[in-house]
Nucleic acid binder design. Sequence first.
DNA 1: CGCGACTAGGTGCATGGTCCACTAGTCGCA
DNA 2: TGCGACTAGTGGACCATGCACCTAGTCGCG
Lengths: 186, 186
Amino acid sequence: MVLRFLVLGLLTLRPMTGYDLKRAFDSSVRHFWAADRSQLYRTLAAIVDAGLAEVEVVPQESYPDRKVHTITDAGRAALRDWLGSPLEAEDSREPFLGRLFFADQVDDAGVAALLAARRAQAEETLAALTAEEERVAAVLAGGGPDADRVRGTRGLALRLATLRHGLAHARTELAWLDETEREVLA
Amino acid sequence: MVLRFLVLGLLTLRPMTGYDLKRAFDSSVRHFWAADRSQLYRTLAAIVDAGLAEVEVVPQESYPDRKVHTITDAGRAALRDWLGSPLEAEDSREPFLGRLFFADQVDDAGVAALLAARRAQAEETLAALTAEEERVAAVLAGGGPDADRVRGTRGLALRLATLRHGLAHARTELAWLDETEREVLA
DNA sequence: CGCGACTAGGTGCATGGTCCACTAGTCGCA
DNA sequence: TGCGACTAGTGGACCATGCACCTAGTCGCG
């Protein structure tokens, strides 16, 4: 369900092919939602079936035809409806906590390795989000040739807010790791 | 995949029926993983098929037979293997951030409602985790008739660590909401 | 006496998501 | 000359999840 609306949201920025969409997806919403190509192509097809977007086939020499998807008024209405609907309950699924919970089955070195792996993950996402934040901040300040500069200041502020969300949680994760290492690796 | 090992982990505490498992699950790992009854029964069956647990049917008068599942040595080995295997990458899926990202499609009141709904969610999880933390702390101190007191002090420390994880992130979420409301609802 | 909750164990189906491979041509690098 | 990466779109298998439904007896409340 959610993926449908994320795709609709991206189509409000500009018309896209499945291929375009994949790149736009990965460079914007990827930090809070993941999807592979086949899923995006299928979702686009479903959106067209539902009349929320229209396709125009643009032939190309020496490359496959481009199927350019443009959002319809019905699509924009569906997106706004979703934005106004009650927020779905989140059921978090964290494999890492699952491991930690049962980590008394392995020795101290095993627990230490688990926490270290988690720390590496958290540091990686912190770095990735910091880089993306700088990119977005640059667009806000200068306005380079970024395809997403179509969005207004308010849109950018919201985008920054989702990035700050990830950053705040990554930092919390690292702080929690510090505390947990002190406590369980006595 | 992960669910398989969570179930194996719970079976290390004591032998269980599907019904027992559901209650143990909900009162321990539920805050970082969700599963319904049908899933747990199916997972138990798969575990038995793989030789990681054995079933003993215990007839009862006036109630359906109990199918008591006991973990095997192979099961314990599989669990330890998983705990030692490389940590899976987490692909977070947060519908809320998806909405926020595209919230420039609705007016300020809509954005405010979205943030308020999220705040309510975060406060709810904070309250739930606080309550559970107190319960676990009581077990650690006194040791009432809790079925999970089978686990040693180290097990309880790890369990508390997963709870503190949730608490830390819930507090971060509230702080982020404060900041975000200030910034986007100017 | 009926209703709902609890104990106990499931089945079936639809949707959603992941993985892998395939077609098919272009371009650049070594 | 071959290898890999890029552009563009598809097909199929499989796994996981969620929801509804079913059997069937017990017990307590009103």
